[in-house]
Amino acid sequence: MIDTHAEMVAGYVVATVIYIGYVVSLWLRARRVRGVILSAAKNRSASERDPSLRSG
C-alpha cells in the first residue's frame, strides 16, 4: 500500500474549506441585505412621520 496520507488530508481540507467558505459568503450577503431592508424600513417610517422628507 502506498503512502497517500497527505492527499487524503488535502482532499478533505479543500472540500471543507469550500463548503465553509460558501456558508460564510451566504451569511455575509444575508447580513448586508438585512441592513438594506432595515435601512429602507427606517427611512419609510421617518418619511411617514415627516411628509417633507418625501422626494418629489
Partner: peptide
C-alpha cells in the same frame, strides 16, 4: 483504507 491506493481512496 484501500489495499492499493491507501488513504487517498477515502477522498
Amino acid at each position: 483504507p484501500d489495499a492499493l491506493q491507501g488513504l487517498a481512496q477515502k477522498i
